Lab assay of single mutants.
Amino acid sequence: MLEGKVKWSNSEKGFGFIEVEGQDDVFVHFSAIQGEGFKTLEEGQAVSFEIVEGNRGPQAANVTKEA
């Protein structure tokens, strides 16, 4: 699992980007967020995730919010 911080997200469009130190930003779709209820990410929020190869390149999977 990698750790990063949410660079920005748009809940209306359903995606955002995660900033990882020393690496390119990672695309995240809201379907990759683990948990119940409305899935949102806040700018600056710490997250853990895996990287998978998506249709348009690397993207985050199994995203969990850190406490």
Rank of each mutant, 00 (worst) to 15 (best):
residue 39 K to P: 10
residue 27 F to G: 00
residue 46 A to V: 14
residue 37 G to W: 08
residue 54 G to R: 06
residue 67 A to L: 13
residue 56 R to K: 10
residue 62 N to L: 07
residue 16 G to T: 03
residue 60 A to V: 03
residue 30 F to H: 04
residue 10 N to R: 05
residue 44 G to S: 04
residue 22 G to H: 03
residue 32 A to G: 05
residue 66 E to L: 15
residue 41 L to M: 07
residue 6 V to M: 06
residue 60 A to G: 03
residue 9 S to A: 14
residue 50 E to A: 08
residue 64 T to L: 11
residue 64 T to F: 13
residue 27 F to D: 00
residue 22 G to M: 05
residue 64 T to Q: 12
residue 34 Q to F: 08
residue 34 Q to K: 11
residue 8 W to F: 09
residue 46 A to L: 14
residue 52 V to N: 04
residue 59 Q to A: 07
residue 17 F to K: 02
residue 10 N to P: 00
residue 6 V to T: 01
residue 18 I to L: 07
residue 27 F to E: 00
residue 47 V to A: 03
residue 10 N to C: 14
residue 30 F to S: 02
residue 12 E to S: 13
residue 48 S to K: 14
residue 50 E to M: 13
residue 61 A to M: 11
residue 5 K to C: 13
residue 52 V to T: 07
residue 49 F to V: 00
residue 42 E to Q: 12
residue 28 V to M: 07
residue 4 G to R: 02
residue 32 A to L: 03
residue 23 Q to C: 12
residue 34 Q to Y: 08
residue 5 K to R: 13
residue 1 M to Q: 10
residue 65 K to N: 06
residue 47 V to S: 01
residue 23 Q to H: 14
residue 58 P to K: 11
residue 63 V to E: 03
residue 31 S to R: 05
residue 65 K to V: 15
residue 50 E to P: 01
residue 14 G to M: 12
residue 20 V to K: 03
residue 64 T to Y: 13
residue 13 K to I: 06
residue 24 D to G: 11
residue 20 V to C: 07
residue 52 V to F: 09
residue 29 H to W: 11
residue 46 A to H: 14
residue 5 K to F: 12
residue 56 R to F: 13
residue 50 E to R: 12
residue 27 F to N: 01
residue 58 P to M: 09
residue 23 Q to P: 03
residue 51 I to R: 05
residue 38 F to N: 11
residue 67 A to T: 12
residue 55 N to K: 14
residue 66 E to R: 15
residue 19 E to M: 13
residue 60 A to Y: 02
residue 31 S to Y: 06
residue 13 K to T: 05
residue 64 T to A: 08
residue 25 D to H: 04
residue 54 G to L: 07
residue 59 Q to I: 09
residue 13 K to G: 08
residue 51 I to V: 09
residue 22 G to Y: 05
residue 31 S to M: 05
residue 61 A to E: 06
residue 44 G to M: 03
residue 65 K to C: 08
residue 53 E to K: 11
residue 52 V to Y: 08
residue 46 A to W: 15
residue 34 Q to G: 08
residue 52 V to G: 03
residue 48 S to E: 06
residue 11 S to Q: 14
residue 20 V to D: 00
residue 50 E to F: 13
residue 57 G to R: 06
residue 44 G to P: 00
residue 31 S to W: 07
residue 59 Q to L: 07
residue 23 Q to Y: 14
residue 34 Q to P: 06
residue 31 S to C: 09
residue 7 K to H: 05
residue 57 G to N: 02
residue 31 S to A: 06
residue 26 V to P: 01
residue 34 Q to M: 12
residue 50 E to D: 08
residue 6 V to Y: 02
residue 2 L to I: 11
residue 60 A to N: 01
residue 8 W to G: 00
residue 34 Q to W: 08
residue 48 S to G: 05
residue 2 L to D: 03
residue 59 Q to P: 04
residue 47 V to C: 04
residue 37 G to K: 08
residue 35 G to D: 08
residue 15 F to I: 07
residue 43 E to D: 08
residue 44 G to L: 02
residue 60 A to F: 03
residue 31 S to H: 06
residue 37 G to H: 08
residue 49 F to N: 00
residue 17 F to S: 02
residue 37 G to M: 08
residue 38 F to P: 14
residue 27 F to S: 01
residue 47 V to K: 00
residue 23 Q to A: 10
residue 37 G to N: 08
residue 46 A to P: 09
residue 15 F to S: 01
residue 62 N to D: 03
residue 14 G to L: 09
residue 11 S to F: 12
residue 11 S to N: 12
residue 15 F to G: 02
residue 60 A to L: 02
residue 24 D to T: 09
residue 57 G to A: 04
residue 27 F to Q: 00
residue 33 I to G: 04
residue 36 E to T: 12
residue 30 F to M: 05
residue 9 S to Q: 07
residue 27 F to T: 02
residue 54 G to V: 04
residue 65 K to Y: 13
residue 64 T to N: 10
residue 3 E to N: 15
residue 21 E to H: 12
residue 17 F to I: 04
residue 31 S to F: 06
residue 20 V to A: 04
residue 54 G to Q: 04
residue 8 W to D: 00
residue 50 E to T: 13
residue 63 V to T: 02
residue 36 E to Y: 10
residue 66 E to P: 11
residue 49 F to R: 00
residue 65 K to T: 11
residue 10 N to G: 03
residue 38 F to K: 12
residue 3 E to S: 15
residue 54 G to E: 04
residue 28 V to I: 07
residue 6 V to W: 07
residue 56 R to Q: 08
residue 29 H to T: 05
residue 33 I to D: 03
residue 7 K to Q: 02
residue 41 L to I: 07
residue 25 D to R: 05
residue 39 K to F: 08
residue 66 E to F: 15
residue 65 K to I: 15
residue 25 D to V: 06
residue 44 G to T: 03
residue 18 I to Y: 03
residue 41 L to A: 02
residue 38 F to C: 14
residue 34 Q to A: 11
residue 39 K to D: 09
residue 30 F to I: 06
residue 40 T to C: 15
residue 47 V to R: 01
residue 17 F to Q: 03
residue 32 A to P: 02
residue 49 F to C: 02
residue 18 I to M: 02
residue 17 F to C: 07
residue 1 M to P: 09
residue 58 P to T: 07
residue 4 G to C: 06
residue 23 Q to V: 07
residue 67 A to M: 12
residue 47 V to I: 06
residue 4 G to D: 02
residue 12 E to H: 11
residue 64 T to V: 14
residue 21 E to L: 11
residue 47 V to D: 00
residue 22 G to Q: 04
residue 7 K to C: 10
residue 62 N to I: 05
residue 50 E to H: 12
residue 49 F to W: 00
residue 51 I to Q: 03
residue 14 G to W: 09
residue 67 A to D: 12
residue 36 E to L: 10
residue 12 E to K: 14
residue 67 A to E: 12
residue 32 A to R: 04
residue 58 P to G: 04
residue 62 N to Y: 08
residue 65 K to S: 09
residue 41 L to Y: 04
residue 23 Q to D: 06
residue 5 K to S: 06
residue 31 S to G: 07
residue 38 F to W: 12
residue 1 M to H: 10
residue 56 R to V: 06
residue 42 E to C: 15
residue 16 G to D: 01
residue 35 G to R: 00
residue 12 E to V: 13
residue 31 S to Q: 05
residue 12 E to R: 13
residue 46 A to G: 09
residue 53 E to P: 10
residue 2 L to S: 06
residue 39 K to Y: 08
residue 63 V to G: 01
residue 43 E to T: 14
residue 42 E to N: 10
residue 47 V to L: 06
